[in-house]
């Protein structure tokens, strides 16, 4: 192996090609100036212009962004509190921990049906933003709890004792020591919650109301009804760009914090955070 490094290079190229060729093709075709999806005749931004002239697309994009941001804030707040709650020993802690991570393994189709039944038939929440928000908070909460809990569990309790020893009341100690130390995990949890919500089709498709369609559901419906059109391709490219931007921003922030802490730091480094991150989707 070491004598033939090009073999490794070829394999790596094949894997990355397999992963990124469809997305690269998608991005390329979105700038095509003809309707063809198989032949690039020239470059233009006409599909994007058309896209932004379409009120339905703008509505769906607006709803998706609002929904993703709101559900990320709510899920992160509840999830962080839950992660700290699970730090203390109390009867049934094990059961609560399992219950909080169960939605990670429940099939989304099932979750959608359950939420539809519960929200609409039982709780009387009308379809649309409210129902979507409840659903998105429900399924992203587990991710936030898992990510933040890993960080909280790794906290040295002596640090909080040291803060108390130096005169910090519990509230001040939390604000000045505990929270800054778990902040990277909270940010990662929030980014995950945002992306999970922004990308979700299955659960959302059950709960969208008239005039309140999320962007992924809109794309799915359009593609299903009329086939893949250049507008849809442009829209899909845009969604990939938004998701990638959130992810890259997260990685950069973690890398920046790690460098600021120390070149050799193992404590605030990115390794621990990324190691405990579940893979989304």
């Amino acid at each position: 192996m070491s004598r033939r490094p090009w073999v490794l290079g070829v394999v790596a190229a094949l894997v990355f090609g397999f992963l990124y060729a469809p997305i690269g093709w998608l991005a390329l075709v979105s700038f095509n100036d003809s309707r063809s999806l198989s032949r690039v005749t020239g470059l233009s931004t006409r599909w994007y212009v058309e896209l932004f002239g379409d009120a339905r697309v703008l509505d769906a994009l607006g709803l998706s962004l609002r929904l993703a941001a709101t559900s990320a804030v709510v899920a992160t707040a509840i999830g962080t509190l839950a992660a700290f709650g699970l730090r203390r020993a109390f009867p049934g802690r094990g059961a609560w921990t399992v219950l909080l991570s169960l939605p990670l393994v429940v099939p989304e189709v099932v979750l959608g049906v359950a939420l539809l039944g519960f929200c609409v038939k039982l709780a009387g929440i009308p379809l649309g933003f409210g129902a979507l928000l409840a659903a998105h908070v429900a399924f992203s909460l587990s991710f936030v709890v898992v990510v933040v809990r890993a960080r909280v569990a790794g906290l040295d309790p002596r640090l909080e004792e040291a803060a108390a020893d130096l005169g910090a009341s519990p509230l001040v100690a939390f604000r000045t020591v505990t929270l800054p130390l778990v902040a990277p995990a909270v940010a990662a949890g929030a980014a995950f919650a945002f992306l999970l919500s922004f990308d979700d089709v299955v659960t959302s498709s059950y709960l969208t109301g008239v005039g309140s369609t999320t962007l992924p559901v809109f794309v799915y419906a359009q593609a299903g009804r009329r086939g893949v059109s250049p507008e849809i391709v442009a829209l899909s490219t845009l969604m990939v760009a938004v998701s990638a931007a959130v992810l890259i921003a997260g990685v950069l922030v973690v890398a920046w914090r790690a460098r600021r802490a120390s070149p050799a730091s193992t404590f605030v480094g990115s390794g621990r955070d990324q190691g405990t991150r579940p893979t989304g989707g």
Binding site: L159, E161, A162, D165, G167, S169, P180, F267
Partner: peptide
């Protein structure tokens, strides 16, 4: 009386320095 109201400070065996703060900010904390 809770620890944060006692005129007593501790040097911990594990140091327990705040990793997110500079040396200056660590010393300034109390």
């Amino acid at each position: 009386v809770p620890p944060y109201r006692r005129d007593v400070n501790t040097v911990f065996q594990s140091y327990a320095l705040f990793p997110h703060l500079s040396v200056w900010d660590n010393v300034a904390y109390g």
